[in-house]
Design a protein around this nucleic acid. Sequence first.
DNA 1: CTCACAGTTTAGAACTGTTCTAACTCGTTG
DNA 2: CAACGAGTTAGAACAGTTCTAAACTGTGAG
Lengths: 148, 148
Amino acid sequence: MGKAAGETRDLAARDLALLATGRLRHAGLRPTRQRVELAGLLFRDMDRHVTAENLHAEVTAAGVKVSLATVYNTLHQFTEAGLLRQVIVDAARSYFDTNTGDHQHFFLETEGLLIDIPGESIEVAGVPAPPAGLAVDRVDVVVRVKRA
Amino acid sequence: MGKAAGETRDLAARDLALLATGRLRHAGLRPTRQRVELAGLLFRDMDRHVTAENLHAEVTAAGVKVSLATVYNTLHQFTEAGLLRQVIVDAARSYFDTNTGDHQHFFLETEGLLIDIPGESIEVAGVPAPPAGLAVDRVDVVVRVKRA
DNA sequence: CTCACAGTTTAGAACTGTTCTAACTCGTTG
DNA sequence: CAACGAGTTAGAACAGTTCTAAACTGTGAG
């Protein structure tokens, strides 16, 4: 919003937008206003876990007008482009993770909270060969936790 | 559904119903016609994986009238009673597993197919201590597979 | 710089799986 | 076997997500 807000914030915002734009171009996605805004929010911090509604509320709260449909579209496009990863832990809603590397999750169901577990620390042994005609695509570990 | 169908089938059906009834009583659930029918289908074979719609179709196809709402109610009651376990692998629908013991799953997403992996064979090591105030409730492993 | 077009966004309708509601039925206990 | 509480039901309601058709916008050509 105002130019009077000071250079620091403006520069940071500009940098963020530039970074996001580059990232989007690399992924073969047109850097539209909406995608740049969403990418800005998503990739500003590492290891974010968002739901569609969640992210829509955030971007709206930030004063940016983006429709819920676009948030869904964007999350899926980002996922397909390898910028996000979908995490399935809850039958009710879909989570998207900005950390696309090899890792697993703690999940606190009562609060819808996801926490990363580094891939190196965890190890799954003894997975049998899948039935004939099938190949392992990915191994997901969800450590469900509760308030102690 | 005639009586002429032969003793073998009739006896098996009666036994099944008796078994189901006993199981329900033990779980503190009134053995209503619907619950007995559903339990009969669910626990006739080991290691079944059903969805609500799925089971509703099956019971209906078997000529038994049970509403979808009752199927949902029953699946949840059975789960609460420890007769079933809910498996979360797909954001779109809920699966229920008749195997309540310690085990994990292969999941073939394209066909909605779940296959058990015995708990003894698989081992998850290196799970870090959960963040303060949280305790591990359960560790779920989903091996996502694809047609080779 | 402008135009035109393909790609994108949007509001709202539609859809899917699940839960709720209020009336009805059934199993159990006395 | 009566009566009461537990269970069932059809259909409405709901949440999250996807679809649709029309409006808009980034991009590359001229």
